[in-house]
């Protein structure tokens, strides 16, 4: 299986990255090299093997449903590139 330049551009778009033509070429070549290497997994017989998502036995930990203090608004906004009236400010989402 190999990944084409078009697929690399599609994946970049999904990941919210813009690639220059040079980057598209070099990333396509490098990703193919890595995916070729990963092809080795294909030869592994994994029939009936449970996928492992975590090193610890999985279980949800619930806490009491109580109101507890969290980050203060001012602190949460301390690193905001832009803010207004106590909120994060972004450019228009919908075209008008």
């Amino acid at each position: 299986m190999s990944i084409s330049k078009e697929e690399v551009q599609h994946v970049a778009k999904l990941a919210r990255l813009t690639l220059t033509p040079e980057e598209t070429t070099s990333f396509t070549q490098q990703l193919n090299q890595i995916l070729d290497y990963a092809e080795a997994l294909k030869e592994l017989d994994t029939d009936g093997v449970k996928p492992m998502s975590h090193p610890m036995p999985e279980h949800n930990r619930m806490r009491e449903d109580q109101v507890i203090p969290s980050i203060e608004r001012e602190l949460a906004l301390a690193n905001a590139p832009e803010q207004e009236e106590g909120m994060f400010k972004v450019p228009p989402v919908f075209k008008g």
Binding site: M1, V11, A12, L14, L17, L31, P51
Partner: peptide, 27 residues
Amino acid sequence: KRRVMLGTYALSSGYYDAYYRKAQQAR
């Protein structure tokens, strides 16, 4: 960028089973 794209690809529809799930089984 390389790893974010690699990960996005491995998780994307059509490749999830071949890459991500297979890797979890190998794990």
